[in-house]
Design a protein around this nucleic acid. Structure first.
Length: 455
RNA sequence: GGAGAGAUGGCCGAGUGGUCGAAGGCGCGCGCCUGGAAAGUGCGUAAGCUCCAAAAGGGCUUCAUGGGUUCGAAUCCCAUUUUCUCCGCCA
């Protein structure tokens, strides 16, 4: 079956290269679907956000207050505009029947009304703007199954598989293996660009390419349609998936053209569906994409960033799905299982965490992290994060679908890494080291063209 | 980068100041016709906000985006974005 999706790139940013986020918010003034929910479920919103350790009491109260002012202003402005429209018609009729004088009298009246209407229209716009500014401060509501907790310590292990206990105690960490086998040159990357931009060489480079192809082929075999997105996005896209305004400092910003380097392919791929109304029968929509990812990771330091653990530029294959509100959690489970199946094929020991309220992201309703165990580092490495955003992104994207009854609803968006390369590479190198070299898992051999990395 | 021409609903396409949220066609939905289908035929078919307890129904906004002229703008003016054609440059 071929799914044809109409892509509407209705990017309407004005010329100025210096405009702020708030300008966009103003333009997208019909992102207000969410306000009804907040208005009608005030207490519920506040309660749920406590799970994310977020006190929304003041913001919500403020939003609702502004909302009633906004609506008041709209009622007034609408009334006046309606009157204006009617008078304009009358003037037209009067001119046609030659009644110039009467028409001119009406014109004066209209001028008066117009000035009055403008006042209300302006304040309506102002309120809308203020309200939007506040609404974007609210994180997504966590799903009811999100565990209570403050830090990563409180995440719940929901699944565990594989055994990493058979490594010798003198196993080397990957940053030593990559040097020993000349797979990655971190210093060379520093010379060319800076820390966190490694140069992959020889079999190291070939391993990268092999993994990317393996991940893409797997995804395609599971029904995902591959796309190759741009690596830079505009402000509207970054906003729609929630990178802006929340994580502005995380992205590299090309200021001259006001474009952002993507921190993940999720951003451009999800934005394919910005301003789109799908049909229910088109769902679920499944895309996969390889991209380089760029993250400033401001504030990171120490052993967490050693070697491949945290990079400014890395490779990742991302999977994205769009589904109905009813089906999205089934989809989330399916995606989680899919990522687990890849880890299994790579013969890596892993476990799956359900993130607690304190650790789950701003935009997500429910997230599973998949972590691979590295004996050499004696720690778990996060290699994938699979999330259901429910309507949080689609609300900003204006991504909707018509259900069977013809009603237009917000779609649910989901995505996950499948997978992020650096930590997979780290785990593969560390866990597969033998006295004779590093063993390549069977599934990868057709892709790499070699089954051992030797000196 | 230079010159020119465009941007209208799910799609194609008409529309140069009021009667235009927008002709006509395609597509889609419902019905009629048919033993069933095709053809034919009739009706319907944008989104957001808002009023109303809700439905029905009303109001406002939207013809790339923003601003301007006008009593009144899809239509006129300005800026921007973007598409196409030609030239230049280039992997």
């Amino acid at each position: 079956m071929l799914i044809v999706v109409k892509l509407i790139f209705n990017i309407s940013l004005e010329s100025s290269k210096t405009h702020s986020i708030s300008v966009i918010l103003q333009k997208n003034n019909n992102i207000m679907l969410q306000i009804q929910f907040i208005r009608e479920n005030k207490e519920f919103v506040i309660e749920r956000l406590k799970i994310k350790n977020f006190d929304a009491t003041d913001i919500v109260a403020n939003i609702i207050d502004i909302d009633s002012k906004r609506r008041e202003a709209q009622i007034k402005s609408d009334e006046l505009l309606a009157k204006l429209n009617q008078l304009s018609k009358e003037i037209g009729d009067l001119f046609k029947s030659g009644k110039q004088t009467e028409a001119n009298t009406l014109k004066e009246q209209v001028a008066q009304l117009k000035a009055e209407a403008k006042i209300f229209a302006d304040s309506q716009e102002q309120y809308e703007h203020e309200q939007q500014q506040l609404i974007v401060l609210l994180p997504n509501l966590p799903h009811s199954s999100v565990p209570i907790g403050k830090t990563a310590e409180d995440n719940k292990v929901v699944f565990s598989e594989g055994d990493a206990s058979n490594l010798p105690s003198d196993a080397l960490p990957h940053w030593e293996l990559t040097t020993k086998y000349r797979l990655i040159d971190f210093e060379l990357g520093s010379k060319i660009t800076g820390a966190g931009f490694p140069v992959y060489t020889g079999k190291g480079a070939r391993l990268q390419r092999a993994l990317i192809n393996f991940f893409l082929d797997e995804a395609i075999a599971h029904g995902y349609i591959e796309v190759q997105p741009p690596y830079m996005v505009n402000e509207a896209s970054a906003y729609a998936t929630g990178q802006l305004p929340d994580k502005e400092g995380q992205m590299y910003h090309a200021t001259l053209d006001n474009l952002y380097l993507i921190p993940t392919a999720e951003v451009p791929v999800t934005n394919i569906y910005r301003d789109v109304i799908l049909k229910e029968e088109d769902l679920p929509l499944k895309n996969c994409a390889y991209s380089a990812c760029f993250r400033r990771e401001a504030g990171s330091y120490g052993k967490d960033v050693r070697g491949l653990n945290r990079l400014h530029q890395f490779d990742k294959v991302e999977i994205v799905q769009i589904n109905t509100q009813e089906e999205s959690y089934k989809t989330l489970e399916e995606m989680k299982e899919y990522v687990a199946s890849i880890l299994r094929k790579l013969e890596l020991p892993f476990h799956i965490l359900r993130l607690c309220g304190g650790d789950i992201s701003f935009t997500s309703a429910l997230t599973y992290d998949l972590e691979v165990y590295s004996k050499a580092q004696q720690r778990w490495l996060e290699v994938s994060s699979v999330s259901n955003f429910e309507t949080f992104q689609s609300n900003r994207l204006k991504l909707r679908y018509k259900d069977a009854t013809g009603k237009t609803k917000l779609a649910h968006t989901l995505n996950g890494s499948a997978l992020a390369l650096p930590r997979i590479v780290a785990a593969l190198l560390e866990n597969n080291q033998t006295p004779d070299g590093i063993r390549i898992p069977k599934v990868l051999v057709p892709y790499t063209g070699f089954d051992m990395i030797t000196l």
